[in-house]
Amino acid sequence: MNRIAADLHFLPCLEFFAAVADAEEILLFPKDRYQRQSYLNRTKIRLANKVETLSIPIQGRRPRLPMDQIKIDHTQNWQAVHLRGLQSGYGKAPFFEFYFPYFEGIFESAEENLWNFNLSLLTMCLKLLRWPARLTVFDGEQIPSDVRDIRAQIMPGRPFLDRSYYFPSPYTQLFGLDFEPNLSVLDLLFCVGPESDQILRDSIKKH
């Protein structure tokens, strides 16, 4: 069985999905510490004039807490900002009307816990990609020897081409002539729909 240990990102980038494309089981670790400047609470989408980062505000200034203890700051109107950004960026995308309601419902759930929120989104992404990978919440300390560990490797501050997971397979995006690689998987789903699976598999970096 192909098993991969991964971080639970917010609406993960295409590199994440290229890295786990062949996984039969994805292990997730609620007791791993929250890391600032990571994809745990941020993702990137494409708007008409720029690439925009969507960030989930969290409670506390520098929480060095396990992921499952991180609370979302609902004093800020971030859900409305994110949903408006998605509608502005992708409202005219070919598959927006089909996929958007699945995510809108999760955003409007008022979930207080970042871990639960990200888990709901990742579960939905895998369902829409029709990937059979099983998500396993792993509370143990010793990772089984047959598990490939990619935690803390896919980070915003390091170029994805420096890593061994993702080499962009371009697809038709909504804005601009230049292809923007490695955005949130939502960019791919909204733009190409059922072709997303094949594009991700074509994007797996060859060694």
Rank of each mutant, 00 (worst) to 15 (best):
F16Y: 15
N77C: 13
C13G: 07
K50W: 02
L47S: 11
A6M: 05
G157P: 00
R201Q: 14
N2P: 00
R42Q: 14
F103E: 00
L183N: 03
G89M: 13
C191S: 13
A23W: 00
D146T: 09
K71R: 09
I4K: 00
Y39H: 01
R64K: 05
A93P: 03
P132C: 06
E25V: 03
R84D: 06
G176I: 05
A6E: 00
G157R: 11
L186K: 04
N116T: 12
Q153N: 12
P156E: 11
D73T: 06
D73N: 14
D22I: 01
L65Q: 12
L135N: 06
D149W: 09
R84F: 10
L186C: 05
F29H: 05
F117K: 03
L14I: 11
D197P: 08
Y171F: 15
K205I: 08
P12Y: 11
Q198L: 11
L128C: 08
S203R: 10
L128P: 06
A152L: 15
D146M: 04
K50S: 03
I143K: 02
E180L: 05
Y99G: 02
I72A: 04
Y102N: 11
Q142M: 11
T53C: 01
N77Q: 15
F16V: 08
K71A: 14
S164Y: 08
F16W: 09
R64P: 02
S164N: 13
F98E: 13
N41F: 04
I4N: 01
E108A: 09
G105L: 09
L174P: 03
S196F: 10
Q173K: 07
D187N: 09
L128E: 14
R61M: 04
G85N: 12
S120E: 15
F107E: 05
Q76V: 06
L65A: 07
H207I: 13
G193Y: 12
S109T: 15
R158S: 08
A6L: 08
R42T: 15
F96V: 10
A19N: 02
E52C: 05
Q35Y: 00
